[in-house]
Design a protein around this nucleic acid. Structure first.
Lengths: 153, 153
DNA sequence: AAAGATTGAATTATCAATCTTG
DNA sequence: CAAGATTGATAATTCAATCTTT
């Protein structure tokens, strides 16, 4: 009985390597952050787009696109980060249904603390792996594009 | 204020591409499985190593290494899959502390149903992306190796 | 005491239903 | 009714503590 047809053994191998690399790198970075007493990567993923957005704020929907999380999941995550005083919700003048999420100074300060740790972990792995990042990035981008086709756009 | 030093812009770009590709591909595959009324990818990740293991069984610890999940998380996942009748726990004759996890015929049958769906989704994305999988896999493997160094091995 | 595995309590994530405004 | 966002109930994940065997 075979579940792995010969045709795409290469695709499967690359996919498994992607899963392993993702898990290993994520664990490595999360551990580096935790060792410094810093919040998890998810907080960075929320705060960074806010920090660099014009006006330092984004609509919930726009923010959701930056984050690997369901809409509901984002609401909950934003709740927690808001409770920590790192961001605040604000009404949207033109559209009273919506809410802005705006980063607080304390949120920007946390980014400043997290980035060096994040960057060091990332840089260490990539440097020691000594790989050509250009074609790697290109291939991964093509994969992401194709995977998103016909999905939810 | 800059959080992204110029030195490793390439590493960061590749990392973000990896995150996006992982999220997009995972979502794509999970959706394909759900559309067919099949269990999530995590079940496949548990059942497949069991199916191909000699004796069609593995120790909990050995199985944990195949899965991106904490030891506790695996225990809970195995609970659920066992409740569905797809595997069973067995005592280990030589070591009464341990437990084997053995796949049931129904588990192998489920693999047979899941694989075509899994494979089709994967193949579609990789084929349409038209990338060279060999160097991609090599780079990702190197990244995973380096990320695991000094971690927990 | 350490290894192998599990459990209880707490955290986090998701689905369906809801509320409000356009 | 559709869009934007949130909430309640439910499910999954994790941490620390536990139990048994080596």
């Amino acid at each position: 009985m075979r579940y792995i047809p010969p045709v795409d053994e290469h695709a499967l191998g690359a996919w498994r390597a992607l899963l392993n690399a993702h898990a290993a790198l994520t664990a490595r970075i999360e551990r580096a952050l935790a060792d410094e007493g810093l919040p998890p990567l998810g907080w960075y993923d929320v705060l960074w787009p806010l920090h660099r957005a014009p006006g330092k704020r984004l609509r919930m929907n726009a923010l959701a696109e930056e984050v690997t999380l369901s809409r509901t999941g984002l609401v909950r995550l934003v709740d927690r980060i808001e409770r920590a005083g790192l961001l605040r919700r604000e009404p949207v003048p033109e559209d009273r249904r919506g809410a802005y999420v705006a980063i607080e100074p304390a949120g920007s300060e946390l980014l400043r603390q997290m980035w060096p740790v994040y960057e060091r972990a990332l840089d260490l792995v990539f440097t020691q792996a000594a790989i050509d990042t250009r074609p790697l990035r290109a291939s991964l981008q093509r994969l992401a594009e194709q995977a998103n086709l016909g999905y939810n756009v």
